[in-house]
Design a protein around this nucleic acid. Structure first.
Length: 787
RNA sequence: GCGAGAGUGGCGGAAUUGGUAGACGCACUGGACUUAGGAUCCAGCUCUGGCGACAGAGUGGGAGUUCAAGUCUCCCCUCUCGCACCA
């Protein structure tokens, strides 16, 4: 055996071996325990980054480990291939999104193969292929038929830069999640999925996902945002109309002294029309629509509003309440109308003080005597009901129930719940996405494309307009069609679907990726689903994971799948971070632009001293990125993988360290030398399998240490996913062997050492697979170490 | 503001059920081997005092429970992440 460990020679050899021997090819074997392991599939941006390497390495360890433990493992990989970057790249480089995407996929697949991941590549899926999205279109039609998909004109989040609609989940602090542009409100006809029908179900099951990090289920719960309260109707004075509000404090209804409507509320314009307030209201509404959404969402933002000129009547005490439109009333929550109770809500209190509106106390805390003039701020706690007619004297908690019952009986209102979650707007005015399979007929209205006409393929030669309207709407050949129902002239829907639709069911497709009679074969999906272990970044805690849970429920309710939750266990791995380096004149520097000299780091462009910034997530903009390819060239896949596993436990952030990589490489060399040293002695010996009692001294200690290590590593991998401590356990074992300085001619030493070497190889096999396969074969085993 | 998580040597991080705090690695120091080594092997490495055996302190701070606390309870501080005018 060579003295030196040479990954360049070893790794391609075993990658080829895995390929040709088809060890990772998977099929359904009913009598075997299945294990569906999934990592979040990447967007084919062109290059694998360290985040991918970490994510897929963690997954690969679990997959290989489970395989070694005898499970039938499904471990697929594919491409989340639709989306904006392909269009942008196409415009910039004068190419086609499809071409750009497929080239990127080829490049990234090659990189993943270089890392030695145990994927069943026969199951590869790319969501931009018609064979894939045709079934998404099929499902869309099914959902349309069941009323789960619908169209409405509504205010949508609009990104001017991306020229497209964004889902609520894609708006971060009032800005586009992708480009950072301020999001505006725009009124458009849009397609929606009725995810709100599942709000309660999605919420309730959050507590039945013990395999998920609490952090994620909490985020989902907050996002769904259930509030229990009541709906109350207020008659508008001199009109045959009502305003419905949602409140969690129906106990304070007697203290409601005015009404606030969101500026976007349809009644605002209607009520002010023809009054002296009309001009002021219009000015206010106009001003609010131009305002930055994130500014408006600030709690500290000054409350302001305008009287609409109309009044409504408090149904409990007949009080005449002025109707305002106010900036703190949000169209996106509840009904867009707030009954304002200034004594018991801080926002209402601020507003009332500013505009001189009445403050009526209806909940009095014990030992206090609040009234509208002596309160420094709103009182939101518990107390005894006052100024509330027949409900005076009881606690406000009791009053919540009694008032709700009273209102229900008298047709004023009823108990209800409100969710923060909105329906999922999926229309996108973009080219590179799955076309929505609908037809607009002037006489029949909206008609689904007949099933036999699917897929509605994306036309190839789209005129990609930079920042224009939906590219598909400019293609006459695409748009013009005939109505399936009356055969008259009709127009196709030109919006495409949000790319999150594709990623909401790809894990089902992996079960039978080439199936052409439906989304998936029932048999395959029932065998494999749900995913036993899902691994990916926490940035998808709301968006992708919530949508996927929703889709699984839809498929379940349509009778297509047996499970209701898609992911049994979820691991959210931390980010890969590195310090930033900045030059006073050249700004952030790439690692290779920094010259490390004795006096300190130095800019290669101008030689001025470089400032070391804080450790942050690797990103192009901060330039603190390490290209995995460089690592692969220098150290090979196994060292790269080992470093990712050893430097931090998976759920924590991993800080990049050149010395850390060096250390991982050194360890593999150390193991290699040990094996090379002992190989002649152990080659023709059976691994020791007797009782430790028949050994003595160091050999007995070593034999016990071997078994202790096996227990620790198995436990660390299987139950805790603590690969860092699993590796350190193996390091300890190797250190023990080195420090014992066993003589090779000691009786039993070769047998025990063979046991030691085999154990180390098996324990390391999930983590450094090429390395382990190589040693395993040197021990004269023919089959893969995985078997 | 609400919710979640975290705080341990010079650094990354161990300590699984309350039981020797600092495993393993990095960095550093010393030694061995060597023409040489930035390779390798061995040893040291929490802080303070001491040549030393050793003594004292020590897991963000403060109190408590316990024979025993990084771990449990209470209060406080700091950091990270998520949500945030949610009526």
């Amino acid at each position: 055996m060579e003295e030196r460990y040479n990954p360049k020679a070893i790794e391609p050899k075993w990658q080829k071996f895995w390929d040709t021997s088809e060890v990772f090819k998977t099929r359904e074997i009913p009598e075997k325990d299945k294990y569906y392991l999934l990592e979040m599939f990447p967007y084919p941006s062109g290059k694998i980054h360290m985040g991918h390497v970490r994510n897929y390495t963690i997954g690969d360890v679990v997959g290989r480990y489970k395989r070694m433990r005898g499970f039938n493992v499904l471990h697929p990989m594919g491409w989340d291939a639709f989306g904006m970057p392909a269009e942008n790249a196409a415009i910039q480089n004068n190419t086609h999104p499809a071409r750009w995407t497929y080239e990127n996929i080829d490049a990234m697949r090659a990189q993943l193969k270089r890392l030695g991941f145990s994927y069943d590549w026969d199951r590869e899926v790319a969501t931009c292929r018609p064979e894939y999205y045709r079934w998404e279109q099929w499902l869309f039609i099914k959902m349309y038929e069941k009323g789960m998909a619908y169209r409405k004109e509504s205010y949508v989040n609009w990104c001017e830069t991306c020229q497209t609609v964004l889902a609520n989940e894609q708006v971060e602090q009032g800005s586009c999640w992708r480009c950072g542009e301020t999001v505006r409100q725009k009124k458009l006809w849009q397609w929606f999925f009725r995810i709100t029908d599942y709000a309660d179900d999605l919420l309730e099951y959050c507590d039945q996902l013990p395999g998920w990090p609490e952090k994620v289920t909490t985020m989902q719960k907050n996002w769904i945002g259930k509030s229990v309260g009541a709906e109350i109707r207020f008659r508008i004075e001199n009109r045959d109309e009502e305003i419905t509000v949602f409140t969690t404090r129906q106990d304070t209804v007697f203290g409601a002294t005015f009404m606030c409507l969101a500026p976007e509320h349809p009644l605002v314009a209607e009520l002010s029309q023809g009054t002296d307030q009309e001009a002021a209201v219009n000015e206010f509404v106009e001003r609010m629509s131009l305002q930055d959404r994130s500014d408006r969402a600030m709690e500290t933002y000054e409350k302001e509003g305008v009287f609409t000129g109309a009044y409504c009547i408090n149904p409990m005490n007949g009080r005449k309440m002025p109707i305002y439109t106010a900036n703190f009333a949000l169209m996106a929550y509840g009904t867009g109308a707030v009954m304002s109770v200034p004594a018991h809500d801080q926002r209402d209190f601020d507003f009332a003080r500013k505009y001189g509106l009445d403050i009526v106390v209806v909940v009095q805390p014990e030992g206090e005597n609040f009234d509208g003039t002596n309160m420094p701020e709103a009182y939101t706690g518990e107390g005894i009901m006052v100024n509330s007619g027949q409900f005076n004297g009881i606690s406000n908690e009791e009053a919540k129930e009694e008032i709700a019952a009273y209102m229900d009986k008298n047709g004023i209102g009823r108990k209800t719940v409100s969710f923060r979650l909105r329906d999922w707007g999926i229309s996108r005015q973009r080219y590179w996405g799955a076309p929505i399979p609908m037809i607009h007929c002037p006489s029949c209205g909206v008609v689904p494309v007949p099933e036999e006409d699917l897929p509605i393929e994306l036309p190839e030669e789209a005129d990609m307009l930079e920042g224009g309207k939906s590219p598909l709407s400019t293609l006459d050949d695409f748009v013009r069609t005939t109505c399936p129902s009356c055969s008259g002239e009709a127009r196709r829907e030109t919006d495409t679907m949000d790319t999150f639709v594709e990623s909401s069911w790809y894990f089902d497709r992996y079960c039978s990726p080439r199936y052409d009679q439906g989304m998936f074969s029932r048999e395959a999906v029932d065998y494999w689903m749900p995913v036993d272990q899902y691994i990916g970044g926490v940035e998808h805690a709301i968006l992708h994971l919530l949508y996927s849970r929703y889709f699984t429920r839809v498929l379940n309710d349509l009778g297509l799948i047996s499970c209701r939750e898609p992911f049994t266990r979820l691991l959210t791995q931390g980010m890969v971070c590195k310090e930033t380096t900045a030059c006073p004149t050249h700004g952030f520097l790439f690692p290779e632009q920094v010259n490390w000299i004795d006096e300190g780091p130095n800019c290669v462009l101008c030689e001025s001293p470089v400032k070391i910034g804080r450790v942050e997530k690797m990103s192009k903009s901060k330039r603190n990125v390490i290209d995995p390819n460089v690592l692969l060239d220098e150290y090979g896949a196994d060292t790269t993988r080992l470093f990712c596993l050893f430097a931090a436990p998976p759920e924590r952030d991993l800080e990049w360290s050149e010395q850390g990589v060096e250390g991982s490489f050194r360890f593999l060399n150390r193991v290699w030398r040990m094996v090379a040293d002992w190989l002649p002695a152990v080659k023709d010996v059976e691994a020791y399998d007797g009782s430790p009692d028949e050994l003595e001294g160091d050999l007995r200690d070593l034999y016990r240490k071997i078994h202790d290590t096996i227990r620790r590593v198995s436990n660390d991998i299987e139950e805790r996913f603590h690969f860092n401590t699993a590796i350190s356990a193996v390091m300890e074992l190797v250190n023990t062997i080195y420090s014992m300085e066993l003589a090779q001619d000691t009786p039993n030493a070769p047998a025990v050492m063979r046991r030691a070497i085999e154990s180390v190889t098996l324990l390391l096999a999930p983590m450094v697979p090429h390395f382990s396969e190589e040693i395993w074969s040197r021990l004269d085993y023919q089959a893969s170490v995985l078997l």
